[in-house]
């Protein structure tokens, strides 16, 4: 018997996976902390324009969303390709009067806010860049009538032209 025995061929050694759950948990916590719940399903195709002067919307609880865009590919068959308005998560009916729906929507959303925040309500307009302004003007007029005057034109940060 020699002191240095020949290595036995034992096949591929098993990888120790006991730390795998820890790694996955780490990833899980990262995603839990850094993301927010998807609240609405956007049914219109919206690609917001880019702008350099954008600011973050801080208080999400005050924000209600109005989407304006052409119906997404899946819904094109039902609604056609004319621009449509989506209020938070529901589309405005083709037969419905947009101005009235927006008015009702704002009043309803304002009802849900606590009393002190009612005047601070923010409407975020997420509008596709190729939509004609007529539709947007209609919504803006409706918002003025509903006295929801703080609006936010949603835009992505344009990094290329920064500092110009």
């Amino acid at each position: 018997m020699s002191k240095f025995s020949k290595k036995k061929n034992t096949g591929i050694p098993k990888i120790n996976t006991s730390s795998l759950p820890d790694i996955i948990f780490m990833l899980l916590f990262f995603f839990m902390v850094s993301t927010t719940m998807r609240e609405t399903e956007v049914q219109v195709a919206v690609k917001v324009p880019e702008a350099t002067e954008v600011r973050k919307l801080e208080q999400k609880s005050l924000v209600s969303y109005i989407y304006i865009g052409r119906p997404s590919k899946a819904l094109e068959g039902i609604y056609g390709s004319e621009p449509m308005i989506q209020l938070n998560d529901k589309l405005v009916n083709v037969e419905g009067i947009p101005a009235e729906s927006v008015l009702d929507f704002v009043l309803f959303e304002r009802e849900n806010l606590p009393e002190i925040d009612k005047s601070k309500m923010i409407i975020s307009l997420r509008v596709d860049s190729n939509i004609p302004m007529g539709k947007v003007d209609d919504v803006k007029q409706a918002l003025r009538r509903a006295k929801a005057l703080i609006i936010n034109y949603s835009a992505r940060k344009d990094y290329r032209n920064k500092g110009r």
Binding site: T35, L57, L125, L149, I151, N152
Partner: peptide, 12 residues
């Protein structure tokens, strides 16, 4: 979702 809401705030 991960997207942060950004935009230009204006008063009507």
């Amino acid at each position: 979702t991960m997207d942060i809401d950004t935009g230009i705030t204006r008063l009507l």
